[in-house]
Structures are given as structure tokens and as C-alpha cells.
């Protein structure tokens, strides 16, 4: 199963990110994870939120250019070798990772979450499931 990530275009200028988080705060959008990819002039803010529909609606109204990207979310036990094991599964399945970022679980303290952007989410999800590693469902995001 893949989850939906919102990718937003922002200029690389002072206050650009603040403007974006301001819009989200004003509309009570809760951020679960956030990562920033940047060049010297612009950046792409990638985020996982509790309510995708609401977030994209307020972003559109505020004039932000954005898109939805399917990504794979994996719970990783907070023990040495936790991430290594997941990466081994993806390597064995020959799944290429375009980018990834981590976030800590909300109520859970014994594991973190990793978001993977891969070429083929279905293959990645199946390979992980075959080794007993569960991936996040969209519905589960809100209650994290």
C-alpha cells in the first residue's frame, strides 16, 4: 500500500517556508512528516499530512503549485540494524530509491517511520510484506 505525499513548489527565499506553514497552521492541517529538497533558487517541500484533501484545497486557494506523489511508509523498529534490514529487502527486490526521509512516530516510542519514494510502490510493498514488514496505510496516518 502506498500513501499520499504532497509536494509543493517554494522559492528559496527568506520566509517562503514560513508562508507555507502559516497557511497550513491557519487551517489546522497537522503535519506528520516534512522534508525539503532544494536548489539555490527553489525548493520542493514534501510532506505527509493528516488530511490530504483539506491540505491540497487550502494550498490551491493560497496559490501554491503542488502535486500528489505516491510514497511508501514503513515502521522501523528503534534498534540497531532496523533500517538496514528494510533496505536489504528493497535491494533484493531491485527497487530503486529516489529519495527517503524519516520521522518519529507520534504515540509510539519504540519505532520511527521512514518514507520511501521508489520507482515501483507495488513491488516494494509486496517485497516488504513477504518479509513481514508492514507498510503504512493512508487511513492510519491521521491516527499516528
Amino acid at each position: 500500500m502506498s500513501i499520499k505525499q504532497i509536494s509543493v513548489f517554494v522559492e528559496n527565499t527568506p520566509g517562503a517556508l514560513y508562508g507555507l506553514t502559516g497557511v497550513l497552521a491557519q487551517h489546522q492541517v497537522d503535519l506528520r512528516a516534512l522534508s525539503l529538497a532544494e536548489t539555490s533558487e527553489f525548493g520542493i517541500v514534501r510532506m505527509i499530512v493528516d488530511n490530504v484533501y483539506q491540505a491540497t484545497t487550502v494550498l490551491k486557494d493560497a496559490g501554491y503549485v503542488h502535486s500528489l506523489t505516491p510514497v511508501v511508509g514503513v515502521a522501523i523498529p528503534d534498534v540497531p540494524g532496523g533500517l538496514n534490514r528494510v533496505l536489504q529487502v528493497l535491494t533484493d527486490a531491485k527497487v530503486n530509491i529516489e529519495y527517503m526521509y524519516a520521522f518519529l512516530g507520534g504515540k509510539s516510542v519504540d519505532h520511527a517511520y521512514m518514507i520511501f519514494r521508489v520507482a515501483d510502490e507495488a513491488t516494494a510493498t509486496a517485497a516488504l510484506a513477504a518479509r513481514g514488514i508492514q507498510t503504512l496505510e493512508q487511513d492510519a496516518i491521521a491516527s499516528l
Partner: peptide, 8 residues
């Protein structure tokens, strides 16, 4: 930037 030209 436009929605058409933007990608993740």
C-alpha cells in the same frame, strides 16, 4: 511555475 510544469 505552473501546475503543468511542476513535478515532485
Amino acid at each position: 511555475m505552473t501546475p503543468e510544469m511542476f513535478t515532485d
